[in-house]
Structures are given as structure tokens and as C-alpha cells.
């Protein structure tokens, strides 16, 4: 119950923030942290709670982003109608990829490789067809207004990101307290023993990757609404996969608040390095890479592991 209360406090605090803070920079920072929390939690549900490390989560992000852009631009759908479609498509992509990989018993590094390959196939496809704007990408027309899910100020995006991140946090909380979550943990810790005890490992993993894909797609849809642009590299490139897994691992895999902590650290660090190292490309990512190595070397349970004590 304590973590449920923490989620409520978080929602309240962020929800009231625009009443006290008017700085667009601050609100923008909080928005990006919540967005990174959403991506991290999406990865965490499959990688942290389920033990299936994906190196190509961009495949779901890109699916959500392109669905959002294509449905609005090619089919004239309203953004509010396109959002649930994009999320559902991300879930479908998750189910399909999961059904293929888990049916054939791909685990560990094999699973990481196959997700990476799928992301790469989709990147090349999006880069090739005019339907997705090919290499040029898609530019969402600017139509500000809540009815179009586009906002003139940061506050609107802040609330959208807060809503999506809260859903992901609530699902992670449910994983900690439900029978299904216990099955997923059992599959992560020892799939063969779990199966021997009657857990349907295939179905349990399939649910995890479906939810994970849907949440990641929600992140992609949010990205399109916020930045009005998507191209194959942004959608299906390695950086987005890395961002998702970094915040989950740095914050603490398999914990409810790990991705949030990781997102705060990553984006805080990003702001610091942006200011001190000017805008030299690469510098901040070197630090992220080093952080990943150091965390695994010295704090394999992430930042959240510090608070939880010995289990």
C-alpha cells in the first residue's frame, strides 16, 4: 500500500505543479522525466519483472509513433481516436513478436538479438516506403488545441505524460501484488521450475510483452504529439531502445519506482552535461554508457536497491 500511496502523492504533486511553477523549462523537464519513466517502465515490465532482456524496444516505440502519425495524416483520424489505436497496435506488435520468439524458446541473448533484428527490419521498411514518408519522415501538421491533442504550453503535455506514466506505474504496482506478477517473477527466476509447478510460462511472458509493447507504443505516440515529427531513425533506431533499458536498469530492474528514479537521474545528468560540455554530440551518451557499466559492476540492483535493503 505504501507504493500505491507514493504513486498518489506523485500524481498530486505533479498535477498541482503548474499552479506554482510557470517556467516552461522546469515543466518541460518534468514532462520529459515522466515520458522517460513511461519508456523505462515499459522495458521494466518485460525485462525487469519478466527477465526477458530486449535490445530492440524501439520496434514498439516506432510502431506507436508511426501509427499515431499515419492514422492522423493518411486516414484523417482525430488524435484522441488515434492514440488508443496506436497503443493497441503496439500491443499487437508485442503479442506477435512474443508469440514468435517464445514459441520457439528464445531466451537470454537470443531474445535480445531477435528484438534487435526486428527493430532493424522495421527501420529499413519505414525508410523505404512512401507510406511512412521514407527517409524524410512524417511531419505532423501543427493544429494546437486540446481537441487535437496538441498543446500551446507545456502544461498540456505534462498532464498527458503524467497520465501515461501513472498507468505504467500502476501496472508495475499490480505486478508486485498480484498472482500474475508472482507467476512472472517465477518465470524470470527459473522458467523450468515455474513450468514444472504448473505456470504456463509461454502465456505469462506473452502477456508481459503485450503490455510492454503497448506502453512503449504510448511513448511513441506521445513523442509524435509533442515533437510533431518522426523519421525511421528516431522511431526504430538504437538510441530509443537504449534509453528505455537504461532508466530501468539504473533505477532498479523489477521495482515499481526504478524507472522513475532512473529517468530522474538520466535526465538530470543530461541537463548537467548539456550545460557543462556545451552541445558536443556524444559526450552525454559516453557518460550514460559508463553509468550502465558502473551500475552493473557496483549496484546490480540499481538505485532502488539502495532503499529496499536486503531481500
Amino acid at each position: 500500500m505504501r507504493s500505491l500511496a507514493s504513486i498518489a502523492v506523485l500524481v498530486l504533486a505533479v498535477g498541482l505543479l503548474p499552479l506554482f511553477v510557470s517556467s516552461g523549462v522546469t515543466l518541460g523537464f518534468v514532462t520529459m522525466v515522466l515520458y522517460a519513466t513511461l519508456l523505462g517502465q515499459a522495458w521494466n515490465i518485460l525485462g525487469g519483472f519478466g527477465g526477458q532482456f530486449s535490445f530492440g524496444h524501439a520496434v514498439f516505440f516506432g510502431t506507436g509513433a508511426y501509427a499515431m502519425a499515419v492514422l492522423q495524416m493518411r486516414f484523417g483520424l482525430n488524435a484522441w481516436a488515434a492514440l488508443p489505436c496506436a497503443i493497441a497496435l503496439g500491443g499487437v506488435a508485442g503479442t506477435l513478436l512474443g508469440a514468435l520468439s517464445f514459441r520457439y524458446g528464445l531466451r537470454g541473448s537470443y531474445f535480445a538479438l531477435v528484438t534487435l533484428a526486428f527493430a532493424e527490419v522495421f527501420r529499413i521498411l519505414a525508410n523505404t516506403f512512401d507510406f511512412t514518408g521514407a527517409g524524410v519522415g512524417l511531419q505532423l501538421p501543427l493544429q494546437e488545441g486540446a481537441a487535437q491533442l496538441q498543446f500551446a504550453t507545456e502544461t498540456g503535455y505534462l498532464y498527458l505524460a503524467l497520465a501515461l506514466a501513472t498507468v505504467s506505474l500502476l501496472f508495475a504496482w499490480w505486478l508486485k501484488h498480484s498472482r500474475y506478477g508472482a507467476w512472472l517473477a517465477a518465470v524470470r527466476d527459473n522458467e523450468d521450475s515455474a513450468a514444472a509447478l504448473g505456470v504456463n510460462a509461454f502465456r505469462v511472458k506473452l502477456v508481459a510483452i503485450t503490455v510492454s509493447g503497448a506502453l512503449m507504443a504510448a511513448g511513441g505516440a506521445f513523442y509524435v504529439q509533442k515533437f510533431h515529427y518522426i523519421d525511421p531513425h528516431l522511431a526504430y533506431g538504437a538510441p530509443i531502445s537504449v534509453e528505455a533499458l537504461l532508466s530501468a536498469i539504473i533505477g532498479g530492474m523489477g521495482t515499481v519506482f526504478g524507472p522513475l528514479l532512473g529517468a530522474v537521474v538520466l535526465h538530470g545528468l543530461g541537463e548537467l552535461t548539456r550545460n557543462s560540455l556545451s552541445s558536443t554530440p556524444g559526450a552525454s551518451l559516453v557518460i550514460y554508457g559508463a553509468l550502465l557499466v558502473l551500475i552493473i559492476m557496483f549496484m546490480p540492483r540499481g538505485i532502488a536497491g539502495l532503499f529496499e535493503g536486503k531481500r
Binding site: 535490445f55 537470454g108 535480445a112 550514460y288 554508457g289 553509468l291 550502465l292 557499466v293 552493473i296
Partner: peptide, 11 residues
């Protein structure tokens, strides 16, 4: 797996 991923990002 994750360490070598981190190394590749760094390099």
C-alpha cells in the same frame, strides 16, 4: 550482455 552494450555505447 548489458556490460558489453554499455561498452559499445561508450566507445
Amino acid at each position: 550482455l548489458l556490460i558489453t552494450l554499455g561498452l559499445s555505447i561508450m566507445l
